[in-house]
């Protein structure tokens, strides 16, 4: 039980702290990064760069372990196929990201920074996820 809860809780907390420190809970900063042809703000390139470098190091070593610290085995994505659904979905996600400057993690983390605005975004996002579930059935 503790082993099932604590790693995700610590991971989520560290994740939320990093999102806030990096400015991702401020949609104005995120849109500033996406405004490449206007008044560009490169801050998010540092966020993504820092995160990718640390995680690339983790990928080098962690999967060599016999099993994760608190689970019996690794459960990692194995698909390699490039599908229209992957590309179309990602294209849509990018449009939504650009419109309001929010993606799922910062939207949820911002529930304590600007609760009403973040809640409107998060509830709408859950509705969008629910629509796909209804269209596709169980997945």
């Amino acid at each position: 039980m503790i082993g099932r809860i604590l790693p995700p809780l610590f991971s989520g907390t560290l994740f939320g702290a990093g999102l806030a420190l990096g400015g991702m809970t401020n949609p104005a900063r995120v849109r500033g990064f996406l405004d490449l042809f206007g008044d560009w703000d490169p801050t998010l390139a540092f966020v993504m760069g820092g995160a990718v470098i640390v995680m690339a190091i983790a990928w080098r070593f962690v999967p060599r372990m016999a099993h994760p610290l608190f689970a019996e085995k690794f459960a990692l994505p194995t698909r390699t196929d490039l599908t229209p659904k992957l590309i179309g979905g990602s294209a849509l996600f990018g449009m939504g990201w650009g419109i309001a400057g929010l993606c799922p993690g910062p939207g949820i983390a911002a529930l304590v920074i600007q609760p009403s605005s973040a809640a409107i975004f998060v509830i709408s996002m859950l509705a969008g996820m629910g629509i796909i579930r209804l269209v596709e059935g169980n997945s």
């Binding site: 849509l92 939504g96 309001a100 993606c103 939207g107």
Partner: peptide, 11 residues
Amino acid sequence: AGLIVGIGTRM
């Protein structure tokens, strides 16, 4: 934006 992000991330 929320609706599109929800749909897009699941797809």
